[in-house]
Design a protein around this nucleic acid. Sequence first.
DNA 1: CATCACGTGA
Length: 526
Amino acid sequence: MPKLPSIKTCLLLSTRSYYTRHRHVSQNHVFPPNESRQTATSLSSALQHHINSDTPFYGQTIHTHILKTGFVPNTNISIKLLILHLKCGCLKYARQMFDELPQRTLSAYNYMVAGCLKHGLAQESIGFVRRLVLEGERPDGYTLSMILKASNSGGDVMLPRNVGGLVHAQVLKLDVDPDDVLYTALVDSYVKSGRVGYARRVFDMMIDKDVICSTSMISGYMNQGSVGDAEEVFDKTVEKDVVVFNAMIEGYSKSVETAGKALEVYIDMQRFGFRPNASTFASVVGACSVLAGVEIGQQVQCQLMKSEFFSDVKMGSALIDMFSKCGRVEDARRVFDHMPMKNVFSWTSMIDGYGKNGRPKEALELFYRMQKSCITPNYVTFLGALSACGHAGLVTEGRQIFESMERDYSLKPRMEHYACMVDLYGRAGILDQAWELVMGMPERPNSDVWAALLSSCTLHGSVEMASIAAKELFKLNAEGRPGAYVALSNTLAAAGDWDNVSELRELMKSRGILKDTGCSWVGTEK
DNA sequence: CATCACGTGA
């Protein structure tokens, strides 16, 4: 039987292989220990070194070595090993270390929660929160901020709807300093759940409002179309950074009215000495596409080409999108062809660009070529391909693509896809197929689907189906869709059902949807 | 042991 290496050898082994690759790192923890207690101490400091210098894999090496010796790590070492495994992304080992701990402290729990979150396992992380509460621990500021993060992670995390409020209450109970990062996390949580008013209230409690929380606040305001409030917060932000500028530019770039300001801020930030980064360029190019300003867009493109982001995939997609929106598909295609690296986004932008510019053949051709290369289409790609089929009236092809979604890529069609298919059948005049699809949906159709069905009925004069679709639509959110009333009214009128038309018009008037009759001003000037 | 917070495209 081979002799097991001693701890001393382990340390030397792991550190030697480490130093051959990282000669610049100080060697102050390599001292060979003489006694067992010292062994633990020097082992601990070696592990600490790998935690601090972000070289977790070497720390893991130490673990495999000490496992061979049969050395039983103390709590201190176990926790360090746990941290190292988390840093390496080995949740399995981390969990094993965690379960073997003699006593599980709050900080150990917090590590597990954070580790799961970092690897996208929000549900798992909440599981650890549950466990710590069941074991009688009280969540501290760290735990609370991670609960917020988990709830913001978007996934299907089982949490009460108003987590933000519940955490807020706990925060107030804990009596934490308003300038703690936790307050920033709270602001961000409220912003992300769309409750900007609450976010502002928390924000106002903070005395030292730094860039980070201001940025959260700004993006919250920008997402609502309250540009003025965003500007107010932005102006009050003393120590600005690239990110705040980006948040402003991104916000401004969304609408035609403010896209010009996006360009101004872009110039401003450079004047203040901030170098634009990939996100900045993406937003600025976005602003150009909103303005349909190819000229400025091309100027930005030139600047971009000279920057270090010239080959950035994000940039390429933004440029493709801009040129497509300006109706210059050929230019978009040139960008696409010259991209050194392409990802799903690049392909999707290009497919969508062809679709939106009335070139379904090219869109589909690209869609098939993409599948032949190693890029896997996603939800948005399918949406682009399906809408291209819709524009071209390619029913059979559309159906095949729709079916391949789940079969070949295990992507469950979303509401948008169903709406797209209904639209495809509807435009082609195959209303019964559209109806069948809607009835066979696994989930309840949303307003987009009913709206697509309604407009198909309007197109082909099917009054009965139109009224069903309209009824469902009104049940959902008719207020946001004045078009629904108009479509139904047109269908009824086309069928000569004037009684219902006038009834509907009354309804529209009472709900404040019917505006004054439009009239032309042409010829009224003196 | 020393975790947690801002912008990201179709």
